[in-house]
Computed example of a mutant assay.
Amino acid sequence: MGQDTEARLLLLLCVTSCGRAQADGLRGHTSVIEVTNGGPWGDWTWPEMCPDGYFASGFSLKVEPVQGIPGDDTALNGVRLHCTRGNAEHVVESKSGRWGLWREPMWCPNRGFLVAFALRVEAAMTPGDNTAANNLRFRCSDGTELEGPGLSWGEFGNWSDSCSKGVCGLQTKIEDPRGLRDDTALNDLQLFCCQS
């Protein structure tokens, strides 16, 4: 059984058994969008959803700057969605890595919303200082593309499918700290499409 299949089974189990609040939060999504180039390390964590009636119109990234030799680089550590409804804002975040700082939010213009994403990932190196996910791009409902302030190692993969009614939740794949061994932090991301 592949990691993606395992993640979906865990999500399904969580929806049915993790508690009413989390299950209620997932009821409003119709599909999951993902990319094919995510990093290989870590585990899928919990999903976080925008409140009902809110749509993700911005995002912010947690990024560790370049550590230099002999430091251990982790690059992209976390993603937050900035969900809006009128003038109200609500921020959601799945699990994030421990390193780095949160950068300023980036917003879709003209009250637009996020509909698709692409992930910049550095291929695995053995031996070497692996970083996995380095940066993130989002496409907005008006076609505008926003590139986060992540690092430049690796390549952007293909765009995910699009959410016709916008993005309203996320789930991250995170490698926990490994002590003196090589850390990568954020490896992959899935987004939930809004139902209405």
Rank of each mutant, 00 (worst) to 15 (best):
A123G: 07
T45Q: 11
I69G: 01
L10T: 10
M125G: 14
E104R: 15
D73P: 02
K62Y: 01
G28E: 04
T74L: 00
V79E: 02
W41G: 00
T131M: 01
E175M: 10
T30P: 01
P40F: 04
L76N: 09
R98Y: 05
R178M: 08
D182W: 07
G53R: 00
D176V: 14
V35H: 09
G97E: 01
L189E: 08
M49E: 00
F192N: 02
E48C: 11
A88N: 09
G166S: 13
N130S: 07
G71I: 08
T131S: 08
S96R: 07
V92R: 03
C163V: 04
L191Y: 04
L81R: 12
V15D: 08
G128V: 14
T172V: 13
G38I: 00
R181I: 05
V167W: 01
A21S: 11
P65L: 10
D142V: 10
R27N: 00
Q195N: 10
T5M: 03
G71V: 09
T144W: 06
M125H: 15
W44F: 06
T5H: 09
G68C: 10
R20M: 13
E93K: 11
R20N: 11
G19N: 09
T126S: 15
W99G: 04
F156C: 14
A23F: 05
G39M: 02
